[in-house]
Amino acid sequence: MLGIASPKLALAYILCIASAVWCVVYALYFWEAKGRDAEVHAETDWDKSQKEMEKETP
């Protein structure tokens, strides 16, 4: 197929194009989709414990 001896490699050739087309279709379909945006929690537990350690360090 396509002048490629191995059918598996011909499939790889086709899948390269198909996967790019899939990306285009998926992106266009969800172009205007609204996502939930997480809030920033700058003061995480990690930061708190880090600051406590810094206070305790002479």
């Binding site: 990306c23 285009v24 992106a27 266009l28 969800f30 989709a33 996502g35």
Partner: peptide
Amino acid sequence: KRAILYGGV
């Protein structure tokens, strides 16, 4: 999601 279009191509 939009970035997928540019990235895939």
